[in-house]
Amino acid sequence: MPQYANIAVSILFDGLAYAMFLFITSVGLSVTMGLMNFVNLAHGAFAMIGGYVVVSLTRSYGVGFVPSLIIAAVLVALISVRFERRLYRRFYRATDLEQVLLTIGLAFMAIATFTYFYGPIPKSVPLPDWLQGSVNLGFRSFPAYRVFMIAVGAALIAVLWYGFERTNVGAMVRAAVDNRRMAESIGINVDRLFTLTFALGSGLAALGGGLAIQLLGLNPNFALLYLVLFLIVVAVGGLGSLKGTLLAALVLGIIDTGGKYLLADAGGFFIYAVTVIVLLLKPAGFYGRE
């Protein structure tokens, strides 16, 4: 294979795997902000907690990696419901600034708590053999773990798309994002809908956190370290839009990877440059409502 084609394939493939991580972790944040206008800066904390659940399960209890991911997602979704019911619910009508203060406070507390119990040393997870080697796709071999990430991402996209576009609940969510008052007046229980999507979003964040351990390592500061990245994906994609979040994750993931590969000196620059350009041209993001 010629050199440039090889490079292009590398960038596309790595970028795709990275984009899947971005998408899985950010989609919940996008829906929360779109549906309830709630700024949840503790979203990264849920991802971090998910990661630690996976670490504990695989290391201390000998549960397999894939079952651990599922358990982590379910567990964090359940925990997040309690948080939503008890704490977040009180602040839906509050100003953005109060929400920022509340959720940043939560993130701080989560970081300190997990530092206390797990220590600050980065953790890793033992992977099953079939995720460690590389997969030969005929013309080239790829790292198995990244293939796995892309597969998980693709499956989730299919499920989410079906849930959003083809089911009753999905239609209600879309209606509520578009016009909350109208949706309420025709009898949709937006509160309960929100609890549901919030739990789903947090569960997905936990899944993303678990998947990211292998990619980025895990320490308690994960809760805030990648928050800016998630916010960028949400803003570029457009609030509450599944399609937009996916497109944003793909564009940013691939451009970031390409930038690092081709122009390592200015590596960090690209993702922000793209953000600025997109937002200046389309202030509400790719698929946001103006």
Binding site: A94, G105, A107, A110, Y116, P120
Partner: peptide, 20 residues
């Protein structure tokens, strides 16, 4: 030196609850 962020976080949450 290790655990202080917890206190800051708690302060912020209490502030939002009681001094919005």
């Amino acid at each position: 030196p290790t655990f202080w962020q917890f206190g800051i976080g708690l302060l912020l949450i209490l502030a939002v609850l009681f001094a919005p």
